[in-house]
Design a protein around this nucleic acid. Structure first.
Length: 628
RNA sequence: CGGGGCGUAGCGCAGUCUGGUAGCGCACCUGGUUCGGGACCAGGGGGUCGGAGGUUCGAAUCCUCUCGCCCCGACCA
């Protein structure tokens, strides 16, 4: 029996998919008349994005406070289905655990994140006054286990994961379930003996993530991402395009895709201006001309021929003593960009090694000896090396090789012509610190970039040694030498999968109904994550034949392993049809007037196709449709 | 935290400016008619007007404080 079971699993993955996720749920027919599904005709005004309005209207969720939501029956059911898929796929590469959400301060002190997480971390005290926090993530705790228990390279690699509630005191919870203060996360951690091992663990996660999101019916992209505060070497985000999203993604036809925080592009060559005078920097009087546009108009010089100056202070709250000794607790950071380019603070922040804030007027005066509006490179003393003291001066790569630019003169009411980087001034380093623009060419295939909004549903990181080193994890390698394991960390936002699926579908319906003023906001979930796969709508329960036929079809479908919601309420057909749409169930079987001919209606809301099928073929038809 | 907006019945709103019995639609309950796209008629229940203090004969309305929620900016699944 087990042999045949495993055989059918491996030979028919597609069919299995339609039936397997429910294995963790009790598979019996649910009767709408006995359920609590509080649908709303109108959405609360607090809700703005489609998924938030629809989740509320469909009775999936109710709000408790800012960023806090109760999942009602339907919401919980959809979440459970997503969790089942995630678990099933993750079990192929890792082992599930469950760690405490309540963590003692000491566990977080070791990594430096007790202070590093700042106000984003919920903190509390126990009755003895000991400090605790509600965990935002579990690198520290997982690493502690590795630290305490792993002794030999023979025990590696390990991939440990959990599906657990995370707490984050977001500065601004928003958009319903999109950005909340308590949410379910699948977080996984890998421990390997060397970088090749980490590469393999990372690749496994990437493959599994793609399977998970595909099974959840999402259209997603994997993009290069900034590794940010996690402090790793490589990272990839999995994004779903939607206007409700908070991230901007640059992508092109050649397959390039990156978060704009990280994206780069090829620029068309620019013909430099001809030098004026003797070709050396030349002062020009530019009274009250402060902005790039003002100077551009005043001197009749295009923005691409100008250099803009961005002045920041970087603060190193977590800097080690050596770093503070070398460059100070704070330092001036100045970036020079092409006049028509925008600074990418994420990129500059990564180079500067801490959070940036704009310079105050007194700091600008101290650094440049000139007021804002007339800042420039000449006369500025750049640190000779990023690790040496002094102002960190970054020249954006787009200005490398350019000449005869117009820049501020560091003298009130004056600019300079003929400024040529490297000849007239030397920055601390040259680096890409600008944001890409739509239409520029991608760096791999040279195709034009498009920029779109997206929501992040998962993120994989090559963490490196940050946590294993900080917590002192070590195993003996083959040569009997103490070796620090290398780590990866991998997250999935469970509720965001549901939210993204709704946004994705609602956008499609909105596009399809664009010309119809009567059309209302709607959506349909993929069968794999919908709270039910099908609603059997008995159009009139007072007609005994309809009721009996509905009961039988629902029972047959249930027996065939399909997850059925039987709408046996004593309501008018119109109400039932509206509700069936609202809850986003992908298939609907209407038992109505065509029953006289032995037929019922099967509606596929994902394709918007309706077919009439005979009552004894319903199971077969729906099974086939679900297997697609 | 800075900026903007909003708290009146489960949901959507009016009433606030100009103080004087707290209203409308939907939802809910009862009865009847209706029954394939959010029905109709009749009757009914439900609100400390976010909270506290003040002004006043009298406060949803004016004043002070306070709490909460939403949206826009710095963070992230």
């Amino acid at each position: 029996m087990f042999a045949s079971l495993s055989q059918s699993e491996s030979s028919k993955p597609g069919v299995l998919q339609a039936f397997a996720p429910e294995s963790v749920l009790s598979l019996h027919m649910h009767r709408w008349s006995q359920l609590f599904i509080p649908t709303l005709r109108e959405a609360p005004t607090d809700a703005e994005v489609a998924s938030h309005k629809l989740l509320l209207r469909a009775g999936y969720i109710r709000q408790l406070g800012a960023g806090l939501y109760s999942q009602l029956f339907l919401g919980n059911r959809a979440i459970n289905k997503i969790v089942a898929i995630v678990r099933e796929e993750m079990d192929a590469i890792g082992q599930e655990m469950h760690l405490p959400a309540l963590n003692p301060r000491e566990a977080w002190e070791a990594s430096g994140r007790w202070s590093g997480m700042g106000d984003n971390m919920f903190r509390l005290k126990d009755r003895k006054g000991a400090e605790l926090c509600l965990a935002m993530t579990h690198e520290e705790i997982m690493t502690k286990i590795a630290c305490d228990e792993l002794r030999s390279y023979k025990q590696l690699p390990q991939i440990w994961y959990q599906i657990q509630t995370k707490f984050r005191d977001e500065p601004r919870p928003k958009s319903g379930l999109l950005r909340v203060r308590q949410f379910l996360m699948k977080d996984a951690y890998s421990f390997d003996i060397d970088e090749a091992g980490l590469d393999a663990s990372y690749a496994k996660h990437e493959a599994v993530y793609r399977r998970i999101f595909t099974r959840c019916g999402l259209e997603f992209v994997g993009v290069e991402a900034d590794s940010g505060s996690m402090g790793g070497s490589a990272s990839q985000e999995f994004m779903v395009y939607t206007d409700a999203g908070e991230d901007l993604i640059a992508s092109s036809a050649s397959g390039y895709a990156a978060n704009v925080e990280k994206a780069t592009s090829k620029l068309a060559p620019v013909a430099d201006l001809a030098p004026t005078g003797d070709g050396l920097p030349e002062l020009v009087h530019t009274p009250e001309q402060k902005t790039i546009d003002e100077v551009s108009a005043f001197l009749n010089v295009e923005r691409v021929h100008q250099m803009k100056t961005m002045a920041y202070i970087v603060e190193h709250p977590d800097a080690d003593e050596k770093q503070i000794k070398n460059v100070g607790k704070t330092r001036a950071v100045v970036a020079f960009l092409r006049g028509d380019h925008q600074l990418n603070e994420t990129k500059l922040s990564a180079i500067a090694g801490g959070e940036l804030r704009p310079m105050q007027p007194d700091e600008i005066a101290a650094t440049f000896n000139a007021p804002a509006g007339f800042l420039g490179p000449i006369g500025l003393t750049a640190a000779p090396h990023p690790k040496k003291p002094g102002t960190l001066v970054v020249l954006d790569a787009a200005l490398e090789g350019r000449s005869n630019l117009v820049a501020g003169a560091n003298k009130e009411q004056y600019h300079l012509r003929n400024v040529t980087p490297m000849r007239d001034f030397k920055p601390t380093l040259v680096a890409d610190v600008r944001s890409v623009n739509e239409g520029e060419l991608d760096p791999i295939g040279g195709q034009p970039l498009r920029i779109g909004k997206a929501v992040e549903i998962g993120h994989i990181f090559k963490l490196g040694y940050k946590y294993s080193k900080a917590l002192g994890a070590s195993v003996l390698n083959r040569d009997g030498k103490e070796t620090t394991p290398i780590m990866g960390s991998y997250g999935i936002g469970i509720e965001r999968i549901l939210t993204a699926a709704i946004e994705q579908s609602a956008a499609k319906f909105a596009a399809a109904n664009a010309g119809d003023p009567k059309a209302t906001e709607t959506y349909a979930l993929p069968p794999s994550i919908a709270p039910f796969q099908v609603v059997v709508t008995i159009t009139n329960v007072r007609e005994a034949e309809l009721l009996a036929a509905g009961e039988k079809i629902a029972a047959d479908l249930t027996a065939a392993g399909i997850d059925v919601l039987l709408d046996d309420r004593d309501e008018r057909a119109g109400v039932k049809f509206k509700d069936a749409e609202l809850i986003g169930v992908p298939f609907r079987i209407a038992i109505g007037k065509k029953l006289a001919e032995g037929k019922v209606e099967l509606l596929n809301r994902l394709t918007n196709q309706t077919i009439d099928v005979s009552t004894d073929e319903v199971v077969q038809h729906l099974t086939a449709a679900l297997a697609d």
